[in-house]
Design a protein around this nucleic acid. Structure first.
Lengths: 109, 109
DNA sequence: CGAGCGCATGCATAAATCGACATATATCCC
DNA sequence: GGGATATATGTCGATTTATGCATGCGCTCG
């Protein structure tokens, strides 16, 4: 239970995860995409990796990082308990409180 | 804008939001439920309120707080981009990755 | 096999907070 | 009014944490 929300708090780490949305990326790629310094990228990637949010695959001297959904899922599930607070206003809330809500698919903006 | 993830990072604030899941609560209630000190509760509630995560309704000397979903929704939407990384294991991932091409050699500007 | 590239790490600094404690403000009840 | 209850705020100390800069290390290719 290594607080996923704490890991996602700094924008720099979220930027890295955003840059990884469409697949594996090398550190060099991530530096260009995020405009962070290379040491910063490496350092944050290490934290993300040790927390299980990304995985690393080495190919020669290239380190390829990719997203690992498991931990992010925990955060998503935590938030799913609050969906009823933005879905359809307040009136149907009592009803929604009856059931035990599980993780649900969310819609994109 | 006001980094929702940063707001959710400290467990104390998440505990408060959890205690508010089933409706309006007074500060005193929240102190009992979370076993935090009263000043801490008030302070964190202020932060949550100024960030739009909870709303306040005063009734006499009682301050009743309740959840306001709007900002939480932002976080949930951000996470929704990563659903494909945990939905149905790894096999469906390749599919999701098809639309966006993988990492390729990049040139410096 | 040596130079250059890709990546990681160590250290120091600075900033952001979280919680504890004491205290201030406001409302209610007798 | 006065005391008790409910909540808010101010201050301080301690801890965590995020870069910036310099450097170390492994791999690859000419």
């Amino acid at each position: 239970m290594p607080d996923v929300f704490r890991l996602l708090a700094p924008p720099s780490r979220r930027h890295l995860l955003e840059a990884l949305r469409d697949g594996e990326r090398s550190v060099h790629d991530l530096v260009e995409r995020t405009r962070m310094s290379q040491p910063s990228v490496s350092k944050q990637l290490r934290i993300l990796r040790e927390s299980g949010l990304v995985s690393l695959r080495s190919e020669g001297r290239h380190h390829l990082y990719s997203i690992r959904g498991r931990s992010l899922r925990e955060a998503s599930e935590w938030l799913s308990y609050y969906e009823r607070f933005w879905e359809g206003g307040l009136k149907r809330m009592d009803e929604a409180l009856q059931r035990e809500p599980g993780p649900r698919a969310r819609r994109k903006p």
